[in-house]
């Protein structure tokens, strides 16, 4: 069994995850990266996307992180996110509808493009988490 480290995922609505993990793969704003135990101290911004973690006993878990900030220190890794979801919390049909709606709105000038883009990213992240 590989070495583990403490991971905290904190969302505004509460602590989403707090426990020992072996590895977590996150989507940063400059691409995907993995954090293992003894990672060099790092602070970076996360993009909207999927995270994937391996717990100590070779168990895999994944979910979505809707943007945020991650701070890696030797003691612990803290993810501050706008919202985090497990696959079982995601409603696939709703996400698909949201995706279609966002795509429609991107074509239409009436709507705020930045908002629609953000909604589209969220929907895509949710769908890809669910279908994995």
């Amino acid at each position: 069994m590989a070495e583990t480290f403490r991971l905290k995922i904190i969302a505004p609505t509460g602590v989403f995850y707090d426990g020992q993990v072996e590895r977590i793969v996150l989507r940063g704003c400059e691409g995907e990266f993995a954090v293992l135990a003894e990672h060099t101290p790092l602070t970076t911004i996360l993009a909207v996307g999927t995270f994937n973690m391996i717990l100590g006993d070779n168990q895999h878990k994944s979910g979505t992180l809707l943007g945020g900030l991650v701070t890696v220190t030797p003691r612990e890794t803290i993810v501050l996110t706008d919202a985090a979801e497990w696959p079982e919390d995601i409603d696939l049909n709703r996400a698909r509808e949201a995706k279609e709606r966002a795509e429609q709105r991107l074509k239409d000038d009436k709507f705020d493009a930045a908002r629609a883009q953000a909604a589209l990213e969220r929907a895509i992240a949710r769908i890809s988490t669910k279908e994995k």
Partner: peptide, 10 residues
Amino acid sequence: VEHSVMQYEP
């Protein structure tokens, strides 16, 4: 000490 070796991106 931790933060003096911290890398920031960006």
